[in-house]
Amino acid sequence: MNVLPRRIWLCADDYGMAPGINRAIRTLIAHGRLNATSVMTAAPHLGHEADELTKLNAGATRALIGLHVTLTAPFKPLSNHFAPLRHHAFPPLAELIRLAMTRRLKREHFTAEIAAQLAAFRAAFGRAPDFVDGHQHAHLLPVVRDAFLAVIGAQAPHAWVRQCARAPRARPLHDRKGLVLDVLSVRFRARAKRFGIRTNPAFAGAYAFTPKADFPAIFPRFLTGLPDGGLIMCHPGFVDPALKSLDSLTDLREREFAYFDSDAFPRDLARHHVELARPAGETGPAA
């Protein structure tokens, strides 16, 4: 009996962070190896490269384009009077987590900032994003999630948002990062449902970003148990001076690019009875 393939979304994060990332993502979209990317409007290298990304969807949609809400250092707010600031930029992730968990953040600051980043996306692309997610998963945090969902529900009601819980069959207990994301996503999904906002049914793509990480061996694990409509995040890119100045995730981006642009990637998809969803005529997960 023929088994229908599961259709998934493979989303490259961080478009706009650096020219090398932008070029790698556009190349993979053009080669049919990605069907979604999320854009950082608070990053310094979007500008005219928003137009280059839009051109790839001329005629037929090759990739969904989302907003990658950015709330951590070294990036700077787009809104006035954002707090807390550290050296005129957002706080580091560890500090943001601590402040969120102790409820020491003011929701109105995040409401204004997320609205500003959404407005910047509209200015760059002439429309609302297809979906919205968060850099370093900061959108899942207490206080932040309420501001995030309120803004998206009111200003981009047709967009879906990323929840980061793994499929039930893909939850190894030794993966502490995955377990944290599973827990944070429980309340996030419940709040999104209350706002009438769609979410992806399952998530994959988190792994330890260490120099020894073997991405071609890691990626097939993300396909295990991932349901139809599931989402895998990824971070392909080419290393350049701009990237080195902004992010610690460098060489692994080139390994991810090499894998996705290789013959091994479609073979792994076929072996797991998975294919990339076709963005044309689709808005994304219906969960």
Score class of each variant (00 low, 15 high):
Thr70His: 11
Lys106Ile: 04
His48Asp: 05
Ile25Lys: 04
Pro227Trp: 12
Phe265Val: 09
Leu243Tyr: 00
Ala286Thr: 15
Leu223Asn: 04
Gln163Gly: 11
Ala124Gln: 00
Arg189Ala: 08
Arg271Gly: 13
Arg33Lys: 14
Asp251Ala: 11
Asn35Thr: 12
Pro201Trp: 10
Leu78Ala: 07
Arg198Lys: 12
Arg221Val: 14
Arg7Glu: 15
Ala287Thr: 15
Gly66Val: 04
Pro129Leu: 12
Tyr259Thr: 08
Phe82Ala: 02
His135Ile: 03
Val151Asn: 04
Val186Asp: 02
Ala124Lys: 05
Ala24Gly: 10
Thr210Phe: 11
Gly178Phe: 15
Asp268Ile: 15
Phe203Gly: 02
Pro172Val: 14
Asp240Ile: 06
Leu276Arg: 11
Asp251Gly: 08
His81Phe: 06
Phe125Pro: 07
Ala287Phe: 14
Thr37Gln: 11
Ala242Tyr: 02
Asp263Lys: 05
Leu181Lys: 03
Pro142Asn: 03
Gly205Trp: 13
Ala154Pro: 05
Ile152Trp: 00
Pro44Thr: 09
His87Met: 10
Arg267Ser: 13
Met40Cys: 05
Ala258Val: 12
Ala204Asn: 05
Ser79Phe: 06
Val143Ala: 00
Val186Cys: 07
Thr283Val: 14
Gln155Ser: 01
Arg253Ile: 03
Pro201His: 00
Lys106Phe: 11
Gly237Lys: 06
Ala63Leu: 07
Pro266Ile: 15
Ala43Arg: 05
